[in-house]
Design a protein around this nucleic acid. Structure first.
Lengths: 190, 190
DNA sequence: TTGGCAATTTACTAACTAGTAAGTAAAATA
DNA sequence: TATTTTACTTACTAGTTAGTAAATTGCCAA
């Protein structure tokens, strides 16, 4: 059982990395199998279909995010630090072989992924946006963030630019991504 | 020759739409062939490889953008109107069956497209960013845009959020995209 | 020690992929 | 009118895809 859990987790880890690197339709069972040194039927044992594998990846990603934001080490942070933590997630993705945001990757492939994955993508995106909007509102009430209009509107701008920024950085380099983050900090804090 | 041009142009048009809808690896020669009522060998006659087809699509897209921005009807516009024109391009994509930006689509698939397409993607992205940065700088000098820091930095924020906003809208709806555009207008003009 | 279960491999399939070679009908050219 | 070129079609290939059924291995409990 412990060995099976290892394989299953290894498959999930690799599938997640591949989705952020090549997209859901950009990798195959053969990629995973050869990388892990197993046969592709082994993957089908743990995940009956590619749709199920993709769904499990997004579900785990969502669970992890909820675990983080509900953990005191993030939850009890002041708004500025919360936002820096959030930006840090994306900076880490960029540093990790130029990965892009899982939500952005799935949205780009939205019209060529199974329906259940589209639903997962919507749920994930909603969760990211809700947390960000709440954090922005908290910071504005505390007088540390400065912006006009609905917090959800500002949150959608920030989230979309982080997603887009990771993609832009693939074409124009990491500096482009950091420029996005720095510009946001200036816009919000000044 | 006129008939050939028609087929060739129809292939390019459809390939461009498919790349913005499903991504470069999300469509096949069979899609194009059946839609146009020709055999897939006919596509290979006009474009020897899928790589060549994709390259031609991006090249035409780049040429079209340069033609637009150098045309007096855009070039002689005041900065605010120029920016509105630019935003309008993206709004039109969203309205056209939820297409995403070609550059964003290719960047997401960056690690699973041929090298020549990566080069085309870089060139396209550079051209979009340069024009936007120049327009922002022009507007700031004219006193109509208000932002701090390097214009290229602000341009990378706006471009990445437009790209990301079109993707976000697939998951959360068109309102999300318009929220991004409206927030930018407020941030810049107030 | 034996029966059973979990995890895996072997061996396969059907569908789809881009790409090719050879042939054809019609139009342009000489 | 003869020849060449353009714009295709027919018919095919080799490789890849997700997915499946059946056999096999290794551990664990009765």
């Amino acid at each position: 059982m412990s060995k099976s859990s290892n394989t299953k987790r290894a498959i999930l880890n690799l599938a997640e990395a591949l989705m952020q690197d090549k997209g859901f339709n950009g990798f195959s069972y053969a990629h995973i199998a050869s990388e892990l040194g197993v046969k592709n039927a082994a993957i089908h044992y743990h995940f009956p279909s590619k749709e199920a594998l993709g769904g499990a990846v997004v579900q785990r990603y969502r669970d992890r995010f909820q675990l983080w934001v509900n953990n005191p080490s993030v939850k009890d942070l002041p708004p500025v630090k919360k936002l820096e933590w959030f930006f840090g997630i994306y900076s880490d993705m960029r540093a990790d072989k130029g990965k892009v945001c899982l939500a952005g990757s799935l949205e780009t492939e939205f019209n060529v992924i199974p329906e259940s994955l589209r639903a997962q993508t919507k749920a994930l995106t909603n969760e990211l946006l809700s947390w960000l909007a709440a954090t922005l509102e908290e910071g504005r009430r505390a007088g540390v963030f400065h912006f006009t209009g609905d917090p959800t509107r500002k949150a959608s701008l920030i989230l979309s630019s982080l997603q887009g920024g990771l993609q832009l950085a693939r074409a124009l380099g990491t500096d482009m991504f950091h420029a996005v983050v720095e510009q946001h900090k200036q816009d919000l804090l000044v």
